[in-house]
Design a protein around this nucleic acid. Sequence first.
DNA 1: ATAAAATACGATTAAAATAATCGCATATAT
DNA 2: ATATATGCGATTATTTTAATCGTATTTTAT
Lengths: 135, 135
Amino acid sequence: MFRFTKQTEYAILSLQYIAKNSNRLVSVREISEELEIPFQFTSKILQQLIKSDIVESRQGVKGGYKLVKEAKDILITDIMEIFDPNSLQPNCIDIINGTICKRSGRCNLQKTVFKIKNEVEKVLKDYSIEKSMKD
Amino acid sequence: MFRFTKQTEYAILSLQYIAKNSNRLVSVREISEELEIPFQFTSKILQQLIKSDIVESRQGVKGGYKLVKEAKDILITDIMEIFDPNSLQPNCIDIINGTICKRSGRCNLQKTVFKIKNEVEKVLKDYSIEKSMKD
DNA sequence: ATAAAATACGATTAAAATAATCGCATATAT
DNA sequence: ATATATGCGATTATTTTAATCGTATTTTAT
């Protein structure tokens, strides 16, 4: 449905938490307990945030995570790109299987969906982790 | 995920088709064949559009559907309200079960999600069935 | 009166996507 | 050696969406 996934939201919450504690490494254990979100699911999410160079980590006893970018430079759209890369695509185009619309040439929906995508993305690009923390 | 459901899109396509043939009743059979979408699924969708006073119908041999409202007065947001009523809600609030966020009082995400919802809705309210047909 | 074609409606099943867990490997500090 | 932490991919569970099914009712043509 037309909403953020839990992965996206847990990523935002985790990044807010890490940003609030930017003076030290924060463990997944602490994040998941503090935010009351599933430990292993959160761990998985942070692994993906590492791969996308948004956070970095250290293993071991005093391990944990910290931000690579500043909170104001991490946009909601960046998070969505990671966790929901096919958002706002028309359903008639199957990117994964590489098929185009069967109504090719006479589909009156694709352009509308892409226009909406562009405008919605403009809205979302105004939201960063920093901005979301001010609410 | 953050995208229109097939129900929403099939509804838009069906309404575009009905609008294009506003001089006559259009059957589900014709709509589903012309748009290459599942017949029974489309039938279900049109039943919901009737309940929402967007189209009206006549049963029987020469039965079919026609618009109740003008194409310019049917908004994408109207369609979403019918087929995806819980769009753009924060995941931490469970409307169906009536539960509130377990991070109550310290959730930094709800307000952001509601702000985004409001702004995205403003974008979407600019799109009607008529406008979507001009692409 | 009957048949054909259409809508009406809720139940049910299938498929896809999301959510979450699991198990083991590696790294670090004590 | 042990405790605590991350790393990583596989797997399972749950939810949501997509689609079908079966039967009832209505309307028109024959």
